[in-house]
């Protein structure tokens, strides 16, 4: 199972990276979303895989640690998922704004702005 999860993480991050390297805004946004899936899964995986051991206590006596998976990465990932939504939303709006203001959806700086900035004073 570990191998499958690792391959999935690798495949998603590779796809995400490839899309991030594209020229237009939309694929880059999609690529970042793919990257966040991969990273979130990776974060959960750092708590090691466990099946049927959700971190929800059964009783209130002494706790049998082996019956539960690590809750901390899950808590961190949960907020990460929500934050990555916020980030995606901002990036989507940025790309939309760039398209509406600039007239195209190229992600790179226009060629004219890319030339070497002269030494001013």
């Amino acid at each position: 199972m570990e191998a499958l999860v690792a391959i999935a993480i690798g495949a998603m991050s590779a796809a995400g990276m490839y899309l991030v390297l594209r020229l237009r805004t939309f694929p880059v946004v999609i690529g970042m979303t793919m990257m966040s899936y991969a990273i979130n899964l990776f974060l959960v995986a750092t708590g090691r895989l466990a099946i049927n051991k959700p971190p929800i206590l059964h009783g209130h006596g002494a706790v049998d640690y082996s019956a539960y998976t690590d809750p901390l990465p899950q808590a961190l990932t949960l907020t990460a998922i929500v934050i990555s939504f916020g980030m995606t939303a901002v990036v989507v709006l940025l790309s939309l704004g760039a398209f509406l203001e600039g007239g195209d959806d190229y992600i790179d700086m226009p060629e004219a702005d890319r030339t070497e900035r002269g030494e001013k004073e």
């Binding site: 590779a14 490839y18 390297l21 750092t46």
Partner: peptide, 24 residues
């Protein structure tokens, strides 16, 4: 680009595999 992306995928995938196979 595909080369970079593959390297990234192998890196992250390999790292997560290595982590998952070891104890804390």
């Amino acid at each position: 680009d595909a080369l970079i992306a593959t390297a990234v995928g192998l890196g992250i995938g390999g790292l997560s595999y290595a982590i998952m196979r070891r104890d804390f």
